[in-house]
Design a protein around this nucleic acid. Structure first.
Lengths: 335, 335
DNA sequence: CTTCATAATCGAACCGGTTCGATATCAAAC
DNA sequence: GTTTGATATCGAACCGGTTCGATTATGAAG
């Protein structure tokens, strides 16, 4: 591997001039610049990112920390971030915390050790220790998906209350009154907002909510399955179920199938968030989806804005909240 | 941030002794070792991975390069690799090539610049230039999924011929003769082997294969959909379709549904590889799946073996080929 | 022909570690 | 009481860049 000293020797200038020429071509005379560029070509010099990061105290990498890289929700975000980063000569490191705050913390510390230029973080915690931890991250950081109270950082996400409200409204209009809701973890902002959207809409419509119809699915497949089972074995069953995320909704569908219920003839189903292959799942589930592409674009732009410009770095934290989109399927029956 | 010099000063030893003590505690006297450890604690010293990597010429990171991090096939592999890496104090960098050889190459070069200790690579190319590229990778590398002719590297994957054969055999036993096959890119080893498994089994059974029943789905959803459409609009339709991967099979299911065919009553369907939520897709598709957990374990162990031990580094390349597993669904009807 | 500001280039220190040959220490062997 | 050999520690060079104050070259103004 050719080093900067090889280039300097060949171009007959000092090492510092080469460094200067490469990072700030304007401050070097035309002649020397050309000589240096030529020398770079002939020796095949490529800057060593490790050495550069050590010297500069910052790398050209952006850390992406998510709870589950397999979730299609993160797919578009990752892609947008990568494309945008590449355009600006940066490189995205993807890491997966499996939704565990401990692991997430270890990952962030690792990334911090690598002196990443910025961080796109899908928060997985909520308590005070967690808030302090995120607050103390030294690098430019953009949080997304989960809004955490007390964290004063850029945030990019969707209007989850609205998402819950849209599905509820839809079912009410179809004549449903006995609507059940499989919720997520109470401490998660997305989960509580979606539930709030449901409750508010039911309240505004003057429909009473059976407390047994609110069950906790923890946003996971297994807990969602059990929650759905609890709903379905009640003597007085709901006529419709809203899954607060894709996992609990599909778990509910599975539970229905196993118990011999037909969806939508026996029970209607609606969910928040898309899944891969949703179009081949029978019935096609009515859902509210997030504009992941746009979310990803905003995250990418915001983080690079913070990284690249000095004034961007000083920008106060800002929230970007997008409206979700209603996508009708055929899983909801008119009563 | 405390540096090694702070530790040295506090423990009243030289910097080199601290370095030695930390990386090889046995070669330092008990007394000094304790003093150093104490000093490390009090100043809160943590080694700077960047500086260490620069000095050593190698980092404690492992690069994982896949074609699509969203594919559940990679999920288990990633998880196994991460867990195993963490146990051995390494860190996994996930990168996504989107299946493009160019991008993959850029990623590998990036990782190489970061001096990763090792590489787990799902190859996405096949031509001579690509082979040369992979052959010239300087770090310990384990390839997986796609076996590429000419690449002399460790390989971990499944018996794809067998996978194709198992599904074919199953359909033959159910009485099917007009079996169609939606294939993948010819140059991909997995694709050609799966097709070979189909052809061989049909041949052995003495069943002639209608050439129109072999269509190319490129392993993608869109091409798979078109290929399936071509199959389904023929006057003489197949009674069963095998999708060479999950994407083309589900695309075929979608095509069937849109044309009003019932699966399995009108046409049977079977596929290779699982998808998330396959259990809620109606009908549950009969499939052959890979033991991704075991594949991941082998990849992880193999790569760390090469990284950690000098004799491991010198090991000749080896192939690890696992048998896939048949998972019956209800998408195949007995004729 | 100086003078002086500006532009171009350089040298040295630094980022935070590792490594290796050299030196110091000490106990056992002669 | 030396010699010897092993063990412990050290100093300096190095990994490959960046940065900044100092120095030299350039050229316009006086």
């Amino acid at each position: 591997m050719a080093t900067i000293r090889d280039v300097a020797k060949l171009a007959d200038v000092s090492v510092s001039t080469v460094s200067l020429a490469l990072s700030n071509p304007g401050r070097v005379s035309q002649k020397t610049l050309e000589r240096i560029r030529e020398a770079v070509q002939t020796v095949g010099y490529v800057v060593d990112p490790l050495a550069q990061s050590l010297a500069r105290g910052r790398s050209r990498m952006i850390g992406l920390v998510v709870g589950n890289v397999g979730n299609p929700f993160f797919g578009d975000i990752r892609r947008e971030l990568e494309n945008y980063a590449i355009e600006h000569d940066h490189f995205v490191l993807i890491t997966d915390s499996s939704g565990k705050p401990d692991r997430e913390r270890a990952l962030v510390e690792h990334l911090s050790g690598l002196k990443v230029a910025g961080l796109a973080l899908a928060p997985s915690g909520y308590d005070q220790a967690y808030v302090d931890f995120v607050q103390n991250i030294k690098m430019p950081t953009v949080c997304f998906d989960q809004k955490v109270a007390g964290i004063d950082r850029d945030f990019v996400g969707s209007d989850n209350r609205l998402a819950g409200a849209m599905l509820t409204e839809h079912l009410l209009q179809l004549g449903h009154r006995r609507i059940a809701f499989i919720a997520g973890p109470k401490h998660m902002h997305t989960a509580s907002e979606r539930l709030r959207g449901f409750m508010d809409t039911m309240g505004s419509a003057g429909v009473e909510v059976n407390p047994n119809f609110i069950v906790d699915g923890q946003f996971t497949r297994s807990a969602g399955y059990e929650a759905a089972m609890r709903l379905l074995v009640q003597p007085e069953r709901p006529t419709a179920i809203i899954g607060a995320n894709n996992a609990v909704a599909l778990a509910a569908l599975q539970a229905m199938q196993e118990l011999g219920f037909n969806c939508p003839d026996d029970i209607s189903l609606a969910m928040i968030d898309d899944v891969q292959w949703s179009s081949v799942i029978t019935p096609r589930i009515t859902m509210v989806i997030q504009d992941t592409l746009k979310l990803g674009g905003i995250i990418a732009r915001r983080i690079l804005h913070r990284i690249m410009s000095p004034e961007g770095a000083a920008d106060p934290a800002q929230d970007f909240v997008l409206s979700p989109k209603f996508v009708p399927g055929n899983s909801c029956k008119k009563l």
